[in-house]
Write a protein that binds this DNA or RNA. Structure first.
Lengths: 260, 260
DNA sequence: GAGTGGTCTAGACCACACT
DNA sequence: GTGTGGTCTAGACCACTCC
């Protein structure tokens, strides 16, 4: 495509229809980004694999390298893809992340020694979605859902009690045994075994008092203040695929957040 | 600067010294970004004002528009600057933000009506920095500091109790009267009256039990779980200029966070 | 219409990783 | 050396804002 000469088709050829809100202008690189996202979602390149080079993609889409580049830049910011200079661009994966827990913002207090992490699965049951779960996961009331409860211990001390809800339709063969034998992050299991990619999440954080059962599991007094972290995890198209309620004991750990 | 011909000075002319860690390569746009940051910090352009156009800056720094553009892009991501198509690029300011509280991630529950915000200043005292305050603000133990305490009410209901610590040297004329007569966000006052720009912040979040005094101010039972949000706010050069401990009542509100 | 940011191109060269 | 992402340039045109 030459910029100096009138191009055969305008460079800003919008693929969208201009019905209601006017032209619905969308830059080329956004359209490329959408195409790449579709390929990622469709599994053309698997997590951990390299996607084609910028030059190849530029040739495929008949645009300049710079335009492909800008599209990939945004995918990288969104965390769908990871760039590695000199090597290529790779599909993001939970399976080989150095940080074990991508979405866990919990850190130990400076004094506390950073001990090994232990996971203890309490149960894994197939239930029907309650009103709350159905709303969060965009299911119908009573549709099948999987509930997983587990405990996270740091240096032997229980710190996180998680209650996880998943759409039953997406997690057919998920069992307590499968969970306890798996090494590595939960999201890696979901990715490799069930093809579900956790891309981003929204959290609502509150302070609550520990119930008797919760207190016992977390080894704190009943009524002790706990951090309640309600996480809704989304995949492609902002489709919710997990509802997780975490209770964090914050005597020895804290939730870290950066604002700007 | 022509790319086709050997340039007089190499385009990647690093301004830094290559002493210890090798060449210390820094892209041109990063150097431009650093220069622009210096100008912002030095007050060459005041908050709310427009900075020169990309073309002007390109001419000033003798680089292409694209290079200036990339520098400004990062400043925009960092929140130091705001781009407005067709109008220009403006120095970020707390004074004319539509969202009143840039760093406050608190939202009302869906049911709760969004009422007007009321601020109630409890006190403003000049004290000496405790060990904790000194460490957080990088002061010496016992150096002068200002303590402000205030209550935030939404629709008449007390929700946030803040205890704010500021370096005394930077906030000479800050008084309770000045605070209570001021309309608008605290950070806007700090910006216009004291020339202190809050650029980013780190928060440590915990769940705690309300003390008797705290409970009374927030109209909750003593021992009720509260969200403790300890914020360290930074200005240019990551210099800490505020330590704030907020206690949030999370029965009617929650702390919202987005992860990706 | 003039000015500003936003998009797009084509081409060159640099830094990094593998072979 | 070859290939990949990363930087830089010069120039064109588009979209938005204001006069």
């Amino acid at each position: 495509m030459s910029a100096a000469l009138p191009p055969a088709s305008p460079p800003f050829s919008t693929v969208l229809d201009d019905t209601i809100d006017g032209p619905a202008f969308s830059p080329l690189y956004q359209q490329i980004k959408a195409l790449l996202t579709r390929s990622l979602q469709g599994g053309e390149w698997k997590p951990g694999e390299a996607i084609p080079s910028e030059m190849e993609l530029a040739a495929r889409f008949k645009v300049s390298q710079g335009t492909v580049r800008k599209a990939i830049d945004e995918l990288a910011v969104d965390g769908l893809v990871v760039r590695r200079q000199g090597k290529g661009t790779f599909v993001a994966t939970h399976a080989e992340e150095h940080v074990q827990y991508r979405f866990l913002r919990l850190e130990p207090d400076p004094e506390g020694a950073a001990g090994p992490v232990e996971r203890r699965f309490l149960d894994c049951r197939r239930l029907r979605a309650s009103a709350e779960v159905a709303r969060a996961l965009e299911l119908k009331l009573g549709e099948p859902a999987v509930q997983v409860r587990r405990l996270l211990l740091f240096a032997g001390v229980p710190v996180v009690l998680d209650e996880i809800w998943l759409p039953g339709a997406l997690f057919k063969g998920l069992t307590a045994e499968r969970l306890s034998e798996y090494r590595g992050p939960l999201y890696a299991l979901f990715e490799t075994e069930f093809g579900v990619r956790m891309l981003r999440a929204e959290e609502k954080i509150r302070a609550v008092a520990a119930s008797a059962a919760e207190a016992e599991l977390l080894a704190v007094p009943e009524g002790a203040p706990l951090l309640s972290v309600e996480r809704r995890t989304l995949t492609f198209g902002d489709k919710p695929v997990e509802l997780r309620r975490g209770l964090y004991q914050t005597a020895t750990h804290f939730y870290r957040n950066e604002l700007n």
